[in-house]
Computed example of a mutant assay.
Amino acid sequence: MATRVAVRSLRERRRQAADRRFGVRLLGSAAVAAIAAVPFGLILVLVEGQWGPLRRLDSGAARRLHGLALDHPAWTSTLRFLSDRVWDPLTLRTAVGLLTVWLLYRRAWRLAAWSAVTAVAGGLIGLLVKTVVERARPSLEDPVARAPGFSFPSGHAMTATTSFAILLLVLLPMVPRTWRTLCWYVAVISVLGVGFTRVALGVHWFSDVVGGWLLGLAVVALTAWAFEAWRADAGRVHADIGEGLEPELTDERPEPGASGG
C-alpha cells in the first residue's frame, strides 16, 4: 500500500513539474516567434523594395488578377464572399475560440492553453509586424475591394494558417483515418485560397500573403514544439503529426477535478 502511494506521489510530482515547464515553454515559444517576426518582416520589406524580380512579381500578379476581377464581376463577388465571410479572420478566430471552450469543458487544460496561446500569439505578432513595417497596400485604378491598415503581412493569410493548423491538430484524433487526408486537403486548399483571394481582390501584394503564411507556420511550429516537449516530460509517447497533437483525446475521460492533457 505504501509503495503504491509513493508511486502515485512520484507520478504527481513529475506531472506538476512537467506542467510548469510546459507553461514556461509555451510562453517562451510565443516570445521567440514575436522576436523573430520583426527582423523577418523588415528583411522581406527590404527585399521587396530593392530586389527587382520580386517587385515585378508583386506588381505583375496584382495587375493581371485585378484585370480579371474587373472583367468578371460574378467571380469577384464570389471572392469577396469567401474572403469576407467564409475565411474572414473573425470567423476563424470564433471557430478556434469555440474549440478552446470545448477543450476546457473536456478538462484538456494544456491543449486548450496551446490553442489559445497559438491563436492570440499569431494575431499579436501579425499586428506587431504590420505596425513596424508600415507597408502600403496596392493602389489600383477602379479597386474592387478595400481594406484598412497596413499590408505586410496579410492578416487573413496568417490567421488562416494558424487557425486551420489548430483545428487540424486538435480534431484529427476524432476523425476516422479514411477521412484524415481529406481534412488535410481542405485545410491546405483553404489556406492557399485565402491568400489568392487577397491578391485577386487587390488588397495585398503576393509577398504579403507569403509572409503571412510563413509567420503563421512559425508560430504553430514553435508552440507545437512546446506541447510536444510537455508530452515528453510527462512520459507520453511521441505523437505523429498525422494523429494530431493529443491522440489520446478521444480515449480519455477525466474525472471531475482531474487535469486532463
Rank of each mutant, 00 (worst) to 15 (best):
A200Q: 09
R180F: 00
T223E: 15
V144C: 02
G193T: 08
W184Q: 03
A147W: 09
I189C: 14
M174Q: 13
S154Y: 03
W213Y: 14
S154L: 08
E252K: 12
V188Y: 12
D251I: 01
R236E: 15
L245Q: 10
V188G: 07
A157Q: 01
G244C: 04
T181D: 10
W230L: 12
A226L: 07
H238S: 14
V144L: 04
G244F: 00
M158W: 02
V203K: 06
D208Q: 10
A147H: 07
R177Y: 06
T162R: 06
D240L: 09
L222H: 00
A239S: 15
A218Y: 02
R146P: 00
H156E: 07
A221I: 12
L169V: 12
C183D: 10
T159M: 08
M158A: 12
V175P: 01
Y185H: 12
L222K: 01
L215Y: 10
M158H: 05
L167S: 03
A234G: 07
T197K: 05
T181H: 12
W213F: 12
I241N: 09
A239D: 04
W184S: 00
A200E: 08
P148L: 09
G155C: 07
L222N: 00
V210E: 11
V237E: 15
S163E: 05
V237A: 15
